[in-house]
Design a protein around this nucleic acid. Sequence first.
DNA 1: TCAATACATTAGAATCGTTCTAAACTGATA
DNA 2: TATCAGTTTAGAACGATTCTAATGTATTGA
Lengths: 130, 130
Amino acid sequence: MKDIKHFLRQNSLRPTKQRVIIANYLFDGINKHVTAETLSNKLLKMKAGISLATIYNTLHDFYEKGLLKKLMINSERIYFDTNTEHHHHFYSKNDQKLIDINVDMKVSGLPKPPKNKKINKIEVLVHLDN
Amino acid sequence: MKDIKHFLRQNSLRPTKQRVIIANYLFDGINKHVTAETLSNKLLKMKAGISLATIYNTLHDFYEKGLLKKLMINSERIYFDTNTEHHHHFYSKNDQKLIDINVDMKVSGLPKPPKNKKINKIEVLVHLDN
DNA sequence: TCAATACATTAGAATCGTTCTAAACTGATA
DNA sequence: TATCAGTTTAGAACGATTCTAATGTATTGA
């Protein structure tokens, strides 16, 4: 796709074959949460012969350009989120699945941060049963 | 310590030398956040010759008995928290340090959970700059 | 008290997600 | 279109964690 190439160039990323394929999938307008593994599986199904190393490289390249958000939900794998706006998540441990919470939420009763520290951002993770 | 042995027995854990040493350190009344690595370092300083395997085993044994909470803050290591009450955290990525938030906080504006799912718990992580 | 045994500890190997390496390849540029 | 910086790749390396299986120890019940 032309616009994906343009999009990559705009973000100082050479539109290589692999990056175009991955970007096309990730930025198709539907927000996604992927890990290197889930992305690899998806690409295998699409018969895009992209090596695991490139998948890792590309996710990190995109992350460094601010095209992806990194989520640290559990310590087993790193999730990348195509929704880079500040938002929160439902997390179902059972399904290993994340769901965006796109509504505004307020946290009240927050204590002062420790001396010399400033609050950067507040992350709310809503764990789901079942 | 007598009471630590008793405490371990109460939790169906044999009070072995290693478990007594580790429990004595972890449950000395001061809440702690440890990883296998930080605990290992601490024990090395105390010249308690406890193998890494035992440290992992013990942390998991304590966790399984509900004596520790597992925290998934970043994906590099697993944190164990001696404060097993429901509470939140400040997190300084810079210092790789966690600070308990023990006051009550309220989250408002939460959307309905997805169908057939129930909210288990809400975790608030306050990221600190600097 | 002591032998039997069930449970714990340990060193080192294995595992698994991720990163690194260095050689081959390719998009951009002049 | 030749050059070259940036990219891809297979496979090695890495680091946290788990496993293995041999050795050690707390508990039990006679």
